[in-house]
Write a protein that binds this DNA or RNA. Structure first.
Lengths: 218, 218
DNA sequence: TCATGTGAAGACATTCACAGCA
DNA sequence: TGCTGTGAATGTCTTCACATGA
C-alpha cells in the first residue's frame, strides 16, 4: 500500500548495475557477490545490498546474486512494459551525435522521431530517424503518444520549446541546453549542460591539484 | 585552518547561480533577493543563502545581493586564477559537437587541443581546435601542462585511454563513454552517459504518468 | 516591515555490524 | 565459513524559524 518513491540516486545506481551486468556473460560467470559489484561500481557492498533489496530481489548467501535473474529483475524495474518512444528536438551536431550514439542500444527505448526547422532536414531520414518540421510537433507527439523528449537546441529557444513539449503531453525532458527550464512539476526535467559539467570537473580537478600539487617527486 | 570541502551538489548550484546571473544586466537590475534566485533555480531561499554564506559572500537585508559583486565572488570561487586548458579526446560527431558548443563560452576554460587517431583529422584544425595524433597525447599534455580532459571515444577504448590520461598527469576527466572508469582516486571523474540519462528520464516520466495517467480530462 | 545569516531540527542517505542461514 | 538482509547508528544535506539590522 505504501510505495515510498525511489530517489534519483538510487535509480542511477540501479541503471548502472544493469549496465555492468550486460557486460558479463552469465554462461561464464553465473553469480556475483555484492562485494564484486562494489569493486565494479565504487559503491559499498552494503549500499548495493540495500538497493537490490529495495527492488525486491533476493540473492543467496552462498552464491551471491544470480546474474541472469538479477538482470531481469533490474530490467523489470527500470523499463516500461512496452517500448517507450523518444523524440529528439534539434538535429544539429549534438542532436545527430545523440541519435547516432543511442540507436539500438536499449530494447525498451527508441528515438522514433526528430524535429528541426531546417528545410534541408525536414522530411528526410537523418542518422536513421525521420525528421519532421517543428510545426508538426504537437500533432505527431499526440498521434504517437510520445512522452519523452531530448532537447538539443540553442538556449534561446529552449524555454519556449519546453513549454510546447509540456503542453503537447511530454512528461520527461532531457535538456542539453544551458537553461533552467521553468515548467510545471508534472514534467520531469534532467539537465545536462556540458559547460557546467566541464566547470565542475575543472573545479574538483583543481582541488586535487592543490592537495597534491605535483606528483613529480614520486 | 579547517577547510571542509564543498560537496558536488553545492558546487553545481554555485555554478548555476553564476550562469543565471550572467543573463541579468546589473545596470538594469543591480540587486537580487534569495527568494528571487529561488524562483529562478527551484531551490529554497534558505538553501541559496547557505550556499552564498559558504563562499563568504554577504548580502544586505535591505537590498539583497549585489549582482555584480556576487557574480565576481562566484567567479573567484569557481574559476582558477589562470585559464585552465582542456583537452578533448575523440573528434567524432559527439566530440565535434562539444568543441563547437563550448568555444568561447567561458573565459577561464578553453579547449586548446584535440586528439584523434583518424589520419584525416590529425594535424588539421577541426571546429577551431588543432587535432593531434593520439600517439602524442602524453607529450603534448605534459608540454602544455593540461590537467582536464573530455573523453568522447567509444566505450571499448575508454578505460585504456583513462589510464593513459591519469598517467599523463590529467586530474579531471569528463567521461561521455558509457563506462565506469577504474582510476586512482587522485583523478576526479564525472560520468555523462547519455543512455543512462535517457533511461532515468524515462523512469521518472513514467512515474509521473502513473500518478496522473491522462490529463485528457482537464 | 522584510530580508539576511544561522543554530537547531528534520529529512534523507550511507555505513556499521551482526543475526541468520546454508 | 562467508555471504545476504537489515535494524541501528552515523553522516550529510536541506529546511525551519527566528534574532538581527536597516
Amino acid at each position: 500500500m505504501k510505495k515510498k518513491p525511489f530517489s534519483e540516486k538510487t535509480i542511477e545506481r540501479l541503471i548502472l548495475y544493469r549496465r555492468l551486468l550486460m557486460n558479463i556473460d552469465p554462461a561464464e560467470k553465473p553469480n556475483i557477490y555484492s562485494h564484486e559489484l562494489s569493486l565494479l561500481t565504487g559503491f559499498t557492498s552494503a549500499q548495493i545490498r540495500r538497493d537490490l533489496m529495495a527492488i525486491g530481489y533476493s540473492g543467496s548467501p552462498v552464491k551471491g546474486y544470480d546474474i541472469k535473474k538479477l538482470f531481469s529483475s533490474l530490467s523489470d524495474f527500470i523499463d516500461a512494459d512496452e517500448v517507450q518512444q523518444v523524440a529528439i528536438i534539434g538535429l544539429g551536431q549534438l542532436g545527430r551525435a545523440i541519435v547516432n550514439y543511442f540507436r539500438g542500444r536499449r530494447k525498451k527505448l527508441e528515438i522514433t522521431v526528430a524535429f528541426d526547422k531546417d528545410p534541408n532536414k525536414i522530411n528526410r531520414v537523418v542518422n536513421g530517424v525521420h525528421c519532421h518540421s517543428i510545426d508538426l510537433l504537437e500533432k505527431i507527439i499526440a498521434e504517437k503518444g510520445i512522452r519523452i523528449a531530448i532537447l538539443a537546441i540553442p538556449e534561446d529557444q529552449a524555454q519556449t520549446m519546453g513549454e510546447r513539449l509540456a503542453e503537447a503531453g511530454i512528461t520527461g525532458i532531457l535538456n542539453y541546453a544551458p537553461t533552467q527550464l521553468k515548467l510545471p512539476v508534472s514534467v520531469y526535467v534532467e539537465n545536462r549542460d556540458m559547460i557546467m559539467a566541464v566547470e565542475k570537473v575543472a573545479y574538483f580537478s583543481r582541488q586535487l591539484d592543490v592537495e597534491k600539487p605535483h606528483e613529480s617527486v614520486s
